[in-house]
Design a protein around this nucleic acid. Structure first.
Lengths: 337, 337
DNA sequence: CTGTTAGCGCGTTCAG
DNA sequence: CTGAACGCGCTAACAG
């Protein structure tokens, strides 16, 4: 079948090969594919037959090259192995996909150097937008994004004065809200369990929101690893004088709860326990965990929309504040109850 | 500064603009960038100065077009909002990135039609490889991938006879292993809680592995929604005659455990409870949950390696079997104990 | 309605 | 060591 060499240069058929087989020019094939109404019925049919015969499949790179668009946005997240980020990405992908954009994800492990490196890779593959988590980044990142002319937006954070648009919530306010719930129940001596602060500006912000709690409030800060084990281990530094425990993540709260259960300490009778995140399992725990709802899904959706809008209109991206709210459940109770 | 119009056609500087400023040809600029050793010291310096001056940044699309490579692979997963998939993707991205590949993810919601649609988008953006979950797909998918000449591989599954390479574990064997643990403890009347079977071939496989359990074993299958709530609700169909509960996912097991705790039913004293997945929190639960360890991270890593190898060598991808193993903890005990 | 001509930005011959 | 010329596959502009 020497024919094959006619329409196969090196493996794949091109628009020209299709044209040759159909007896038309490459331009006509292109038109038949992109604006069928500008091509006569009969040649259109011949072309489609030729496409089938040659097994032609459009070269996406050539198309992207000429249009200058990749319809791809990149997201840099600290990890995928944490529900909060995967939930965010899920919502992000869903909305992006609805607007015909693809999502490339890269994991930074919370390391700004790695983040920069991966950002470069994303840019050099042609993403049109770049989504990062939090505000602390390598300085080069902004410059890089600007030079590549891609829009950059930070999430999990709301800070209108920042050097890049932010879409998220106010971590300080959220932390205050959580603390207010506990103090409102009369707690004055409270353990605050949190993950590493370095390279996690969200945690830093939350802690900042707690620091000016008031003179009559005693806060005991306990830093631990941000996982279930860490939540349990942090309890070594807790004693019953602290009538409440505020965990700056539900993962920590669950770790703590499981440990308390194992030790036979009753929640909320012996100690009130509060989380932060409102993960899926929290409402089903025994007792159901009081937590702080973060608008993660909304954030994913809003971020996708903002990026798509910007890509379409050219208008700069505006920061968006999303609101957090308490989810009061049974793990917290008035002090001394 | 009329100069700008010299090296800015429509917004961005090209390799030609750089050459013009540096007083060399575009070819020399290209060489200076890709094979610096073939360019003299002095012109190289002039070129770099020109790059800085023009703010030149390589056009990734043109590069991809000429090289014919995007260094991108796509992954289709049912959801990101489940630890098992996000853990997998995390490992996948990490390894892929180490080999300088980018990862595009798309969510299918377990819908084969949506999967096909998204696969098309991934292909039309130029992915070099496509990773899917499980074995049941729209028939067009294989054909599509072949025509686009991208390598396709299925995960979460091991089935050497399948029409595409599989990298994963044998769900049937794993289920048998789990059941054997319970029967080995003397349990004969066992509730099996599982998620929807339609559009989830992993669950189907696991159930299949259970069906020929033996004549003296009574299995009560309870289907529910695949989330924490579902695990709890499934217990409505459980009674104490069933001395053990096997959940085909840790999420279900946790949902069940929380409900049992709320109802004051002691595990494992009143009933043995076993999960399947071995998620992060499982070992910290009270009691620690007996489960079946799935090699998720290995699977991510192995899949990435297989795809990269294939892309580099051209050899077909070979199926890989990864092994599951029991994680025996305190939530299961001999019957009647 | 269709063919011809021009690029898009870059890498890679092949001469010098 | 460097420049000119060509090609990657496709779309857009202009003729016919």
């Amino acid at each position: 079948m020497a024919q094959r060499s006619t329409f196969r240069r090196k493996g794949r058929a091109t628009i020209i090969d299709v044209g040759r087989v159909a007896g038309v020019s490459d331009a006509t094939v292109s038109r038949a594919l992109n604006r069928p109404e500008t091509v006569s019925q009969t040649t259109r049919e011949r072309i489609h037959a030729a496409i089938a015969e040659t097994g032609y499949v459009p070269n996406p790179l050539a198309k992207a090259m000429v249009s200058g668009r990749t319809h791809t946005v990149g997201a840099l997240v600290p990890t995928l192995d944490h529900a909060i980020f995967s939930k965010f990405l899920h919502a992000l992908e869903t909305e992006l996909s609805a607007q015909s954009y693809n999502l490339v994800v890269a994991v930074t492990e919370g390391d700004n150097t790695l983040e920069l490196e991966k950002a470069k890779k994303l840019l050099s593959m042609g993403v049109e937008g770049l989504i990062v988590s939090g505000l602390s980044h390598n300085g080069e990142l902004l410059e890089l994004a600007e030079r590549a002319a891609v829009s950059l937006v930070a999430t999990s954070y709301y800070e209108p004065g920042a050097s890049l648009p932010t879409i998220g919530y106010d971590n300080e306010v959220a932390a205050k809200l959580a603390l207010a719930h506990l103090t409102g129940l009369g707690h004055r001596n409270i353990a605050v369990i949190h993950g590493p602060v370095s390279s996690n500006d969200r945690t830093q912000s939350r802690l900042k929101g707690l620091h000016d709690a008031g003179n009559d409030i005693d806060l005991h800060f306990i830093q631990t690893s941000l996982d279930y084990r860490g939540g349990g281990e942090a309890l070594l530094q807790w004693d019953r004088s602290m009538t409440a425990i505020l965990c700056l993540s539900d993962v920590l709260a669950m770790g703590a709860l499981f440990k308390l259960q194992a030790d036979g300490i009753q929640v909320p009778h012996d100690v009130s326990l509060m989380g932060f995140d409102n993960m899926d399992p929290s409402e089903f725990l025994t007792p159901p965990l009081t937590s702080l709802k973060l608008p993660i899904e909304d954030m994913g959706k809003a971020t996708a929309k903002a990026v798509c809008d910007h890509l379409q209109s050219g208008e700069p991206i505006a920061s968006i504040e999303l609101h957090t709210q308490l989810a009061v459940r049974d793990s917290t109770a008035p002090v001394g109850k």
